[in-house]
Amino acid sequence: MATKAVCVLKGDGPVQGIINFEQKESNGPVKVWGSIKGLTEGLHGFHVHEFGDNTAGCTSAGPHFNPLSRKHGGPKDEERHVGDLGNVTADKDGVADVSIEDSVISLSGDHCIIGRTLVVHEKADDLGKGGNEESTKTGNAGSRLACGVIGIAQ
Rank of each mutant, 00 (worst) to 15 (best):
P29D: 12
I114S: 09
L39G: 06
L107W: 00
H121R: 00
T89D: 14
N132G: 13
K129P: 01
G86H: 03
E101F: 15
A96W: 08
L127A: 09
G57R: 03
H81Q: 01
S103R: 13
I19G: 00
N132R: 10
C112H: 15
G86E: 04
A2L: 11
A153P: 15
V88R: 06
G83I: 02
G115A: 06
G130T: 10
Q23I: 07
N66T: 07
D126T: 03
R80G: 00
V82D: 13
G13P: 05
G42H: 06
I100N: 14
S60P: 01
N66H: 06
V30P: 05
V15K: 07
Q23E: 11
H111F: 11
T3D: 15
T55H: 04
C147Y: 04
K37R: 14
V48A: 09
V120E: 01
E22Y: 07
V8W: 08
S26R: 13
T40E: 14
V88A: 15
I36M: 10
V98R: 03
L118V: 13
V104W: 11
G17K: 00
D110A: 12
N54T: 13
T40M: 08
E122Q: 11
D93L: 12
G28H: 13
D84F: 01
T117K: 04
G17A: 09
H49V: 00
I100T: 13
E134N: 04
L107H: 06
G11E: 15
T138E: 02
C147T: 01
N27D: 15
K71V: 05
A61V: 04
F46E: 00
K92G: 08
G62F: 00
I152T: 15
G28A: 15
S135V: 01
G115L: 02
K37F: 06
D110G: 11
Q23V: 13
D126L: 01
V82H: 06
R70D: 10
L85S: 01
G131E: 12
G17H: 03
I150E: 00
K92N: 14
I113F: 06
S103P: 11
A5C: 11
F46Y: 06
I100D: 11
V104H: 04
A61N: 03
G142Q: 13
T3S: 11
G74E: 15
G73Y: 03
A141E: 01
E25S: 12
I152R: 15
E22S: 10
A5L: 13
I19F: 09
T59Y: 11
A61G: 04
V48G: 02
E133A: 09
G45S: 03
G13I: 07
